Computed example of a mutant assay.
Amino acid sequence: MLSHKKSLDILRKTNALLEGHFILSSGLHSSKYIQCAKLLSYPSKAEKICKSLAFKIRKNFKKFDLILAPAIGGIVIGYEIGRILKKETIFCERVKGKFTLRRGFKIKKGSKVIIIEDVITTGKSSMECVKLIKKSNAILVGFATIIDRSSKKTLKIKKKIISHLKIEVPTYKSNKIPKELDSIPISRPGSRFIK
């Protein structure tokens, strides 16, 4: 198991955790930005974190049949956790704005499913995955993520989330930015701004 400090060191060294002044996809401002894709570009470092998360999943979810990951952020994490735990892993992707199973993927009736993501902020993507599980008459076992940066105020998930790391990421509306953050130049790293 990786310690919290070692995990944060890995995230900083791979630029998966940035500090500065960011406008997030939500339009809110923050002093931290998390981009797990940067961690995944270093497979040997990502493997250490995924092994640690797999250990926690095994400890908390005794029986499950399938891992479902939302595209695109959850695909690599889902695959790696599936490889470690020797579980079938599929992903869903957006078609006309809604998560759909494509490529011949199916969730068998009655199967026990875990949803795995890279980062959970509000849980909106995960809850969209839950609809696919219910539609297949399967059973949701729980949620797992590398980084849980949710807050009770914004989280849509009511079940327990198993995470490798829980990171507090304060966010601010544009009219309530603290002075120390307001003095730092703004970055817009998210993909939602790309036209």
Rank of each mutant, 00 (worst) to 15 (best):
M1N: 13
L2T: 07
S3L: 06
S3G: 15
K5H: 02
K5I: 07
K6M: 05
S7H: 01
L8T: 11
L8P: 03
I10E: 02
R12T: 06
N15T: 11
A16H: 01
L18Y: 00
L18R: 11
E19L: 03
H21Y: 07
F22S: 00
S25T: 12
S26H: 07
G27T: 04
G27N: 05
G27I: 01
G27E: 01
L28F: 14
H29C: 00
S30Q: 07
S30G: 14
K32S: 02
C36T: 03
K38R: 04
K38L: 04
S41K: 03
Y42W: 08
K45F: 00
K45V: 01
E47R: 06
K48S: 14
K48F: 05
C50R: 04
C50F: 04
K51Q: 04
K51R: 02
K51A: 00
A54L: 02
F55L: 06
F55T: 10
K56R: 14
I57F: 10
R58D: 01
K59Q: 15
K59T: 12
N60L: 00
F61Q: 04
F61C: 10
K62S: 09
K63L: 13
F64E: 03
L66K: 02
L66A: 09
P70G: 10
A71L: 07
A71M: 12
G73D: 13
G74Q: 09
G74L: 05
G74I: 02
G74E: 11
I75W: 09
R83S: 15
R83P: 13
I84F: 02
L85I: 11
L85W: 04
K87M: 00
E88D: 14
T89N: 13
I90M: 08
E93S: 11
E93C: 09
E93T: 08
K96N: 11
K96H: 06
K96I: 06
K98P: 11
K98G: 01
F99S: 09
T100F: 02
R102I: 08
R102T: 15
R103M: 10
R103I: 00
F105S: 03
K106C: 10
K106G: 01
K108M: 11
K109S: 15
G110H: 08
S111K: 07
V113E: 12
I115T: 09
I116R: 10
E117G: 05
V119M: 00
T121G: 04
T121F: 02
T122F: 10
S126Y: 04
M127Y: 05
C129P: 04
C129K: 01
V130K: 12
L132D: 13
A138R: 00
A138H: 03
I139R: 02
L140A: 12
V141G: 05
G142W: 03
A144R: 08
A144F: 05
T145N: 08
T145C: 05
I146L: 15
S150W: 02
S151T: 15
K153S: 14
K153N: 14
I157N: 05
K159Q: 14
I161Q: 03
I162C: 08
I162N: 08
I162S: 07
S163K: 09
K166S: 00
E168V: 06
T171A: 09
T171M: 06
Y172K: 12
S174I: 13
K176I: 10
K179I: 07
K179T: 09
E180F: 13
E180Q: 10
L181R: 01
D182H: 04
D182A: 12
S183H: 03
P185H: 08
R188H: 14
G190A: 15
S191E: 15
I194E: 14
